[in-house]
Amino acid sequence: MQSTSSKLWMAYKLRLKRRWLLWRALRKRHQLSVVRNRTRQITRDAILGFSTVRNEILRLPFFLKHYRALGVEHFLIVDNNSDDGTREYLAEQPDVSVWGSTHSYKKSRFGVDWLTWLQIRHGHGHWCLSVDADEILVYPDNETRPLRALTGWLDARSIPSFGALMLDMYPKGRLDRQIYRSGQNPFEILCWFDHDDYISKMQDRTYYLSVQGGVRGRVFFPNEPSHAPHLNKIPLVKWNRRFAYVSSTHAILPRRLNKVFGQSAQNPPTGVLLHSKFLHVVIDKSREEKQRQEHFTYSSRYDHYYDGLMANPDMWCEASLHYEGWQQLAELGLMSQGDWRP
């Protein structure tokens, strides 16, 4: 049992950390330059999408289509040095505001500092969805119940955040065997996944449930499972300007917002972020990322991961499952319907 004073001390330390994160965001706001600001269009209860992108012209058309259909009304996107037309493409979209930054992705805590500033400035009081261009959110009944139905349900129960497992999707055969065309549903190609090699650990002090493993653990980190990327995410939050993501969208402060999985007494539904990283372009991108060393805190640990990807592997195995839709994910326990259904 923790004593009351050490609990208080922990709470105080986390508070300091949160304020430090907010302060960073405030300072880094100068690294952003406006490319196209349409934030005046944002209505009072609009659901907002936040993202940092770099050379994502291939994925963006499907990304925007998917989230528009779910009911995201405005996107606030930071473009980090794209040279493939991403910035121009985004600037043309009627519901997107774009900022540019030429500064280090890693030093801005993988874009989180920039997004925190935009969330302070524009997200307060809104449901904010923070996702990367290769993350496609699905949740129970998402075809018939847009995000607003979900946020309404959460609002009615005063639940401020919604969790999702990131599910790495991969093709059958070598990665470059099937070529993805812009606008296509990436999961026509990446239609396989690992369904039960996930490892979760509870971090008692921050109420944070870490999940690792999956296909990346199996293929790239069989000897260092603790280095495998984290798969737990909190992509949807009823934002307050005092909130701050800690590392990517894996964890957030204040810590009560981390109670989105089984830790919650409320039995909320959870979702899955289908991860479209392993399209054919990942091979070239890995070559570039290995050189840039901008993606992980301990970049050198991940050299063999990039090497593995550059080798154009086949991640498929006999036990892989073919993706059939959210019902399947709920049946497998990768997402929970919670009290949201029937």
Binding site: G213, G214, V215, G217, R218, P222
Partner: peptide
């Protein structure tokens, strides 16, 4: 080398959470 549920035969992966 791989079993149902995509469980790999890596001892380290297993020992990361043997109960699971």
């Amino acid at each position: 080398t791989i079993y149902n549920g995509c469980l790999a035969n890596s001892a380290k992966l297993r020992d990361y959470n043997p109960e699971k």
